[in-house]
């Protein structure tokens, strides 16, 4: 187990390094950030001066080494636009993203898993068809549409929940639904497949033969065995929810890192964009590492053959 964990850790480190390099290269490929920072009417001299000030007139290899050195020292630079450390800006937005990811996870798990189990247990029935419609809707509705729709129905028409912003549980509900819908569908499908799979196994038949009811078999035996794939997916989905809230955060005026990414792109604050992208990649790599380790821990075959 330790050897496997070490090997996966090395892979994760390589992935993060790769992302850092890609972010660096893309930021440079996209053109000179200096041009974005100066006012429209700036003269050539002003642009040259700022370019020198920011170090963009150095050879790209020199810039790359300096960037890596800064990152290793955990120095992510200062926002050129806001004049604050980029990490401080990121940190101020993180609690909101975390709150929303937890809210969305709650929706996804608490609705998705029972729905999936129900679909498996009563498969072929009217309930499954009803739930399937629900799941497919959650899966296929783009968030820009579901977000606006939720605002209009529950905020404007019914007036039950706030139309935008953060603060209190009531403002968390709509964005959590919009963000959690896709994960909810994933969990429902995963849970359904896993439970159907387990229900066809011999131990289920044996348990039923012993006179246990279908419900008792599902609760006592099937769910525990079906949980393995669902648990590992959950870690990946949480990573997704942390990183994938750009549209939902924008629509609901939710001040998390997705919104920060958009705002930084619009205000041309490339230092912050760089930090956000790097952070999201690290989260993603960390979550998939966690999922792999959890999987290996739950299922010895993986750590033996992996």
């Amino acid at each position: 187990m330790a050897g496997y964990a070490f090997w996966r850790l090395v892979q994760a480190a390589i992935a993060v390094f790769g992302v850092m390099t890609i972010v660096f290269v893309i930021m440079r490929l996209a053109g000179d950030p200096t041009l974005l920072l100066v006012p429209e009417g700036a003269t050539r001299e002003h642009i040259e001066a700022l370019r020198h000030e920011l170090g963009f007139d150095r050879p790209i290899a020199v810039q790359y080494v300096a960037y890596l050195a800064d990152v290793l020292r955990l120095d992510f630079g200062q926002s050129v636009v806001q004049r604050l450390p980029a990490t401080a800006i990121l940190a101020s937005r993180l609690p909101y993203t975390l709150e929303l990811a937890l809210g969305a996870s709650a929706i996804a798990l608490l609705v998705g898993i029972p729905a999936g189990v129900a679909m498996a247990v009563w498969r072929g029935g009217a309930l499954e068809r009803l739930l399937a419609t629900f799941v497919v809707t959650g899966q296929s509705m783009p968030t820009f549409l579901s977000g606006i729709l939720l605002i209009l129905v529950f905020g404007v028409l019914l007036g039950w929940l706030p139309t935008s912003g953060s603060g209190g549980l009531s403002s968390l509900v709509l964005p959590s639904i919009a963000l959690g819908a896709l994960s909810m569908a994933t969990f429902a499908r995963m849970a359904r497949i896993a439970v159907v799979d387990e229900l066809s196994k011999d131990y289920v038949r044996a348990a039923r033969a012993r006179g246990l009811s279908q419900g008792a078999v599902v609760v006592r035996h099937v769910l525990r065995n079906a949980a393995v794939p669902v648990v590992t997916i959950a870690a990946l989905e949480f990573g997704n929810l942390l990183a994938g809230a750009v549209i939902v955060e924008t629509v609901f005026a939710w001040p998390g890192i997705g919104q920060l990414a958009i705002q930084s792109i619009q205000s041309r604050d490339f230092v912050v964009v760089q930090v956000v992208v790097l952070f999201v990649s690290v989260i993603y790599v960390a979550m998939s590492l966690l999922a792999d380790l959890a999987y290996a821990w739950l299922d010895p075959r993986i750590r033996l053959h992996g």
């Binding site: 606006i148 605002i151 404007v156 139309t163 935008s164 912003g165 629509v251 005026a253 958009i262 705002q263």
Partner: peptide, 15 residues
């Protein structure tokens, strides 16, 4: 308040 999406700003106005 910071409300990036124009449709949401309109919804805020209406409510």
């Amino acid at each position: 308040r910071v409300v990036p999406d124009v449709a949401t700003r309109v919804a805020d106005l209406r409510t």
